[in-house]
Design a protein around this nucleic acid. Structure first.
Length: 271
DNA sequence: ATGGTAGCACGGCTA
């Protein structure tokens, strides 16, 4: 554990991570390994999959992180952990667009607004989940229009959209499939039109992925997608020094099963 | 071939 205040003065740099962990309960030991090895300043977690006492908050608190979360049993669930300081102005949920599911938590920490998202996956285009996904993005845009105020902000998380052909292993196979559908790309473009930019894309080579299905040996076949994102408004994007996918954390560690997503890391200059 | 794997209210659903 390190002393937050003096260390931050010595190294004015913020290491921001987004990671869909596929159950914070099943991944508690694995996430602990990650925190000790990578020491993020802010970690945005998606897919908690548990609520209440089943969330192992102690693993964050024991390492000096402040925590804010929005959770439900079984599915979804998002959490922000920060050692920049307390998390203030916390907002939970996307009223009118999330159908009561725990998919958005936001807060301000260290002078940075974090909007942490777990967007719907969409299942198949002919399932009710797909129009729900599109409505969620429409509601998100409306909410961001009202929320973005020019202060440094990142919109971060598992957006379940691969924005371009370099972000998915076989774009031709996904032309009519959620994660790479034209209707989703239209929503992506509308988010960017709010003044947000994808601050990871310029720093990673084409065909860099953040998610590989557990099934069919997808990781070893490099059958992946880049669906975990960090979007930043101008005030935050100006501070980005680098970004990468921590691909090694998609592998087993000490015999522990990994998530099907790797952490995505963005390094920012301190304020 | 409607699979394959992992996780959650233990078992159908979600990804």
């Amino acid at each position: 554990m390190r002393r937050a205040s003096s260390a931050d003065l010595e190294a004015p740099r913020v290491k921001l991570v987004t990671w869909n962990v596929n159950s914070i309960k099943a991944r508690a030991d694995y996430v602990s390994l990650f925190l000790d090895a990578e020491a993020p300043d802010v970690l945005a977690v998606q897919e908690l999959k548990v609520d209440g006492p089943n969330i192992p908050l102690a693993l964050f608190e024991a390492r000096g992180y402040h925590v804010a979360f929005h959770a439900q049993p079984r599915w979804n669930g998002v959490l922000i952990a920060s050692r920049l300081g307390p998390i203030e102005a916390v907002h939970r949920g996307l009223e009118g667009a999330d159908e009561g599911e725990a998919r958005l938590v936001s807060g301000v920490t260290g002078g940075l607004r974090i909007v942490n998202l777990y967007c719907p996956q969409g299942q198949r285009v002919d399932s009710p989940k797909f129009p729900f996904k599109l409505r969620f993005f429409d509601g998100l845009r409306t909410w961001l229009e009202q929320t973005l105020d020019g202060s440094p902000t990142v919109v971060i998380g598992d957006l379940n959209i691969a924005p371009g052909p370099d972000d998915i292993w076989a774009p031709e196979r996904f032309a009519d499939v959620p994660s790479y559908h034209p209707e989703e790309h239209a929503r992506w473009d509308r988010l960017l039109a709010l003044g947000l930019s994808d601050v990871v894309r310029p720093h990673v080579p084409p065909k860099t992925y953040s998610f590989w299905d557990y099934r069919g040996g997808a990781f070893h076949r490099e059958h992946g997608m880049r669906i975990d994102h960090v979007l930043a408004n101008a005030a935050a994007a100006d501070r980005v020094e680098g970004a990468w996918v921590a691909r090694d954390w998609r592998k087993k560690k000490d015999g522990l099963t990994p998530s099907d997503h790797a952490p995505v890391v963005v390094q920012l200059r301190g304020a």
